[in-house]
């Protein structure tokens, strides 16, 4: 859900349900590293509600689009982490496999 003004699309607050610090803090990190963003922060209005408010203010771009790009960036980061991790685990398993074979000899 987006709360923004019609006159100025460059600043808006996004209220995301069923999310917490896990997503909001990662998104804040990615958003803050975007040069188009002048301000970004998030808050959890009440600890009993599963909801975060993410505030995005930009230098002129539409805030929603910038947030979408950040989500895209975070996904790419995750994909890279996953592939790197899988590769590292595979290499480790291969190495360990060879080691255990040497022990048996």
């Amino acid at each position: 859900m987006e709360h923004g003004s019609f006159q100025d699309p460059s600043q808006a607050t996004f209220s995301v349900t069923d999310e917490d610090h896990t997503l909001a803090n990662s998104l804040r990190f990615i958003l803050n590293q975007d040069p188009r963003v002048t301000f970004c922060g998030y808050s959890i209005p009440h600890p009993a509600d599963a909801r975060v408010n993410i505030r995005v203010q930009t230098t002129g771009d539409v805030a929603g689009e910038v947030l979408k790009d950040s989500c895209q960036d975070l996904m790419l980061v995750c994909q890279h982490v996953r592939s790197t991790f899988d590769q590292a685990v595979m290499e480790f398993k291969n190495k360990e496999g060879l080691k255990s074979m040497n022990i048996r000899q």
């Binding site: 987006e2 996004f14 995301v16 999310e19 896990t22 997503l23 990662s26 998104l27 929603g64 947030l67 979408k68 989500c71 895209q72 975070l74 996904m75 995750c78 994909q79 982490v81 996953r82 991790f85 899988d86």
Partner: peptide
Amino acid sequence: FTEAVKILEDKCERVITEL
């Protein structure tokens, strides 16, 4: 761990589709 990373990806995708 790989499942955890996938879940974070799914969360991003959800926000993109909602926007």
